[in-house]
C-alpha cells in the first residue's frame, strides 16, 4: 500500500494503476458527498468525473499541507457549489424568460429528489429533509452535510472549510435551528 506521497509521485509519473488506486480509495467519498449536496444521481456522477479529472490535472500543485482526503473533499465541495450556482443562474434566467412566456410557466424546475441510499419507507421524510437542507446557506449546508452524512469530525470539517472548530459548531447549531424552522413551516402549511 502506497502512502499519500508515493501515490502522488506515481500519478505524476503517469502511472494509471496508481490513479486507479486513488480512485478506488476516494470514489465513494466523492460520489456520496456530491449526492448529498446535489440530490441527483446523474449530476453526482458528472461531478465525480469532474473531481477526478481535476485531481489528475492538478495533483502536482497539491502542497501536502493537508491530507489528500481533505484536499479531495475541498475540490468536491467547490465543484458542487459551482454547479449549484450555475443552476441558480439557470433558474433566474428561466424566471426571467417565463415573464415573456405565453403559458406563464417556469421553463426550468429542479428535478425530483433522487438518492439511491435512501430506503423506500424513508423516502418521503428524506426528500423533505433534503429540500429543507437545500434552503440553508452554502456554509451551513456544507457543515451539516459533512457532519451528519459524511460523519466527519469538527476538526476535519474546519480544515475542509478553512475555518475554526468553533465556527463549525456555530454553523451546525444554526443549520439545525434553521432546518427545524423550515420543517415546522412546511408541515404547518401542509
Amino acid at each position: 500500500m502506497l502512502n499519500d506521497r508515493e501515490l502522488i509521485e506515481a500519478i505524476l509519473g503517469g502511472d494509471e494503476a496508481a490513479f486507479k488506486m486513488l480512485y478506488n480509495m476516494f470514489t465513494n467519498m466523492v460520489y456520496n458527498t456530491a449526492l448529498s449536496i446535489l440530490q441527483q444521481q446523474s449530476e453526482a456522477e458528472d461531478i465525480t468525473q469532474d473531481v477526478f479529472i481535476e485531481i489528475h490535472k492538478s495533483i502536482g500543485k497539491f502542497r501536502q499541507e493537508s491530507t489528500l482526503k481533505t484536499w479531495i473533499y475541498k475540490i468536491t465541495i467547490t465543484k458542487c457549489y459551482d454547479y449549484l450556482k450555475r443552476q441558480k443562474t439557470k433558474k433566474r434566467f428561466a424566471q426571467l424568460t417565463s415573464l415573456f412566456n405565453k403559458e406563464n410557466k417556469l421553463v426550468y424546475d429542479k428535478p425530483h429528489f433522487e438518492h439511491p441510499g435512501v430506503a423506500l419507507e424513508n423516502k418521503e421524510h428524506a426528500s423533505v429533509l433534503f429540500l429543507a437542507i437545500s434552503k440553508l446557506t452554502i456554509k451551513q449546508q456544507t457543515a451539516f452535510t459533512l457532519s451528519k452524512i459524511e460523519q466527519l469530525s469538527y476538526q476535519e470539517i474546519a480544515e475542509i472549510m478553512n475555518t475554526t472548530t468553533s465556527s463549525v459548531e456555530s454553523l451546525l447549531f444554526r443549520a439545525t435551528r434553521n432546518l427545524r424552522i423550515t420543517l415546522s413551516e412546511y408541515y404547518k402549511n401542509k
Partner: peptide
C-alpha cells in the same frame, strides 16, 4: 438522515 446508506458509483 441517520437511515441514509452509502451509495455506490
Amino acid at each position: 438522515i441517520h437511515s441514509i446508506q452509502r451509495a455506490e458509483a
